[in-house]
Design a binder for these strands. Structure first.
Lengths: 146, 146
DNA sequence: ATAATAATGATAATGATTATCATTATTGGG
DNA sequence: CCCAATAATGATAATCATTATCATTATTAT
């Protein structure tokens, strides 16, 4: 991976932007100051940087991937209502990981955990008026590591 | 959510197919026996069923979403090399979840955990010839729940 | 300084998913 | 049991995110 002005700009912008932007969002942000940088370059760099572990790619939120300049081990909470992403500065135990390796007989190199639900703001807003049609969605949350 | 023949067929097919298919794959499978069912119907039903918690939507693997008829709490391992998905029949402790709720001050209704790495098969195949360019990818795996 | 080659930018192309809309099927009253 | 309300369907157009292409430019090891 060679250096390039554009790569630096993308990294810096991601750092500044803070709120787990999509490639598209970050591109628009960058475009304000650097109208000469193309979309493809932003996509390319974000992907390359995340492949190398220098940034984090977060998937499974909405349609698109989000990116996070923080590579410290942490997880995410996504509000089902407003879509906002919150950081959860938490680690997972090595015990869990070795358990998983045991189960699968596979070598684990990375993992991803994300929680969903309602953030405080949305919960307050929707108090009394349920945003979900029925209770089918009230998911069973597991009890104890097995 | 009303009943329909198509919904039953989609659910049954997902059950039969077993291997965490994408909507597209499942559509092709269904199409063999039921050429009258459209793609949109398969997509619609899979999404609706997963919203209701009757099946599981798995995201963040490749470009597309996969679906899983098993709603028992479990996680997934995805091979970075061949893309195969393995089940990990594991639960997460309530302690972790309440910790996460504490951190975020949000109400958690569901969670998702996925591991990545190399499956046994691919590891054997690639022994000696590293498929990754460098060691930057050897991700720091966290130590102990903090 | 230079040759090899990785990165760039513009844009076309792709792939997955959703929206549209006229038609059909399901369902809870009467 | 029939009927009105409306959810579901199928075909296809449209959208959205992302990747491929390719000629040009920039970086880097020698």
């Amino acid at each position: 991976m060679r250096n390039s002005k554009q790569k630096d700009i993308v990294l810096l912008a991601l750092d500044e932007y803070r709120v787990h932007p999509t490639a598209e969002e970050l591109y628009k942000y960058i475009h304000q100051k650097h109208s000469d940088i193309g979309v493809a370059t932003v996509y390319r760099n974000l992907n390359k940087l995340s492949e190398k572990g220098l940034i984090k790619k977060i998937t499974g939120l909405d349609g698109s991937s989000h990116f996070d300049s923080c590579t410290e081990p942490h997880f995410h909470f996504i509000c089902d209502c407003c879509g906002k992403i919150y950081d959860i500065p938490m680690n997972i135990s090595n015990y869990l990981i070795s358990k998983a390796e045991e189960f699968t007989d596979c070598k684990i190199t990375s993992m991803d955990m994300s929680f969903r639900g309602l953030c405080r703001e949305c919960e307050d807003k929707h108090r009394g008026s349920p945003i979900f049609e029925d209770k089918e969605l009230e998911m069973l949350l597991a009890a104890g590591v097995t």
